[in-house]
């Protein structure tokens, strides 16, 4: 092997990588907040008795769950500006693509959780005179979040990982910066290894939390 491992240039470029990491975190955290909240709304729409609500919501979920995240991102980047004549900041576009994806996956998680809530509770809400919104907010939502939490965390981790795809449409996230740094320094091994380790260092604690949550829920 003629390649000498030398982390000097990669470590010198650590600032660049941190800048990228900031963008990655910004993209993922914003998408997670949007995904967790709107995912619940979409789940309610899917379960609504009105076809007008459930049909679009179901199609939305199926489309985003059954196509590669890469084509969703590329589609939104190239086609949204052309079709609607809107030109948004690349990061906003990235958040849009990632959160739509996450909303679809979270809605599925919420739906499964809501189905696990005993029907008797809904009858009790009616008996107590709660209206639809009160029932959803005070009875269904807290339990749905609790039951869906492990899956929501897992989905959050995967959107953090999927966020690396935005590098392909030239958003300057961790992945993009890593690719650039490796080309500039001719140090692919060191750079890509460091980038992978940064992703791993963030995902691992989250994975641990998710499995702990699952264990606790099983006990409860």
């Amino acid at each position: 092997m003629s390649y000498d491992i030398d982390f000097f240039y990669t470590l010198k470029g650590i600032d660049t990588l941190m800048e990228g990491l900031l963008v990655t975190l910004q993209l993922s955290l914003t998408s997670i907040v949007i995904g967790v909240s709107l995912g619940f709304v979409v789940a309610l729409m899917v379960m609504s008795p009105s076809k007008l609500l459930s049909w679009p919501a179901t199609s939305f979920i199926e489309i985003f769950r059954c196509t590669p995240a890469l084509i969703q991102i590329v589609w939104i980047f190239y086609c949204v500006p052309m079709l609607f004549n809107v030109f948004l900041d690349p990061i906003v576009m990235g958040v849009l693509a990632l959160s739509l994806n996450l909303i679809a996956f979270n809605a599925e998680a919420y739906r499964a959780a809501i189905q696990a809530i005993p029907k008797a509770q809904l009858d009790a809400s009616v008996a107590l005179g709660l209206n639809k919104i009160q029932t959803n907010v005070y009875v269904v939502l807290p339990q749905a979040i609790r039951l869906a939490l492990p899956v929501l965390v897992t989905n959050g981790i995967s959107i953090f990982q999927q966020s690396a795809l935005v590098a392909i449409v030239a958003i300057e996230d961790l992945m993009y910066m890593g690719k650039m740094l490796s080309t500039e320094t001719y140090r692919p091994i060191e750079t890509f290894t460091v980038v992978a380790l940064i992703y791993f260092a963030i995902a691992l604690p989250a994975m641990y939390i998710s499995s702990q949550l699952e264990k606790r829920l099983k006990v409860a």
């Binding site: 092997m1 890593g178 692919p188 890509f192 980038v195 691992l204």
Partner: peptide, 23 residues
């Protein structure tokens, strides 16, 4: 298992494509 579940597939692919030949 944890490493491959904990990192983006894209970086795994890039690592293998760019780094494995060097090694």
């Amino acid at each position: 298992v944890e490493f491959f579940r904990g990192t983006p597939v894209l970086i795994q692919l890039f690592w293998i494509f760019f780094c494995l030949p060097l090694i």
